[in-house]
Design a binder for these strands. Structure first.
Lengths: 159, 159
DNA sequence: CCAAAATGCATTGTGCGCAATATAATAGTG
DNA sequence: CACTATTATATTGCGCACAATGCATTTTGG
């Protein structure tokens, strides 16, 4: 009835080992990625989530898509509790405008200012600069991205 | 010299497209993963970062490793600004103790309480339950985890 | 032994994320 | 038209993350 010397809690210890957790790999990699972006985005006066919002706005404007808070939320999977103050800060920085829709007074329409539109040109080399820093082969990064997107859709829309 | 009609900003628009960003795939997948864990960890009275801390503590105790705040920080890549209040909450929940080291008065030693140790048994099925929910093949999840770990080490230790 | 540098942790402030709740506007029902 | 339900956003509160700063305690170099 004596316990094995190296694994006092039994063989199943590996199940809870930190290095075996996909969740921790995801958590740590995401924060490391954010840290790499931070200095580049600081040059643009943006935080990382603010940058993601700007990506959506640039893309939507190019597509002629009108953007509401809820539409942004669906795209980024964020709710109003996150987006409302973030958008207020972007508006304070004169990058976007927030305006109640005329058709539906509940809807707040987000639009780029001239300055917000202009930031796109300066942002264009950010992804490239960053992926170079990562030092992983582009096709491998792309494969990883697709695996993550698959995992995401499995986790969100029924697993 | 006229611009193509569909992409007013030029062909390079795809560089900034949200769906092409590894960083967003990482960001979204991490939050989705956290959301899956949340209800399971709520049964244990833990948040997600608290759960990661407990994983480290369970692992360290099994290995006879004494744990300081800085050691925890190295393992999880978190600093004292995050860990100090988190550990205070774990101590308030009677899962850990925080005690100044005798040998070096600067060091705070973190130890499991009986209750904190006991939580390990209840946590044991959490990773399995979760990976089942993800609905992805185990070997594929494992490969993804290893890719993320590779990316992490490239991003942190010189890319 | 003493001054300076380094170390370990705590504190403060800002900005997310997210749950819960509130508020206002619209849509649907009889 | 009143009444209810739904929708869209805002607000509040809590818990991270992280930069910056502060402070006490070693450690180091002379």
């Amino acid at each position: 009835m004596s316990e094995p010397p190296v694994t006092p809690e039994g063989v199943e210890n590996t199940v809870l080992a930190l290095d075996n957790q996909l969740c921790f790999a995801l958590y740590a990699a995401n924060r490391a990625m954010t840290s790499l972006y931070r200095p580049l985005l600081a040059e643009l006066g943006l935080t990382y989530p603010q940058y993601l919002v700007m990506l959506v706005l640039w893309e939507a404007e190019a597509a002629g898509q009108e953007v509401s808070v809820s539409w942004l939320g669906q795209r980024l999977r964020l709710d109003s509790g996150t987006l409302t103050p973030l958008l207020k800060r972007l508006a304070a920085a004169d990058l976007v405008t927030r305006q109640r829709s005329g058709a539906d007074e509940r809807v707040v329409t987000i639009a780029l200012t001239t300055q917000g539109r202009g930031l796109k040109a300066r942002a264009k080399d950010v992804p490239v600069r960053l992926l170079c820093q990562s030092g992983m082969a582009p096709e491998r990064l792309q494969a990883l991205r697709e695996e993550l997107k698959t995992l995401l859709s499995l986790m969100t829309h029924g697993g």
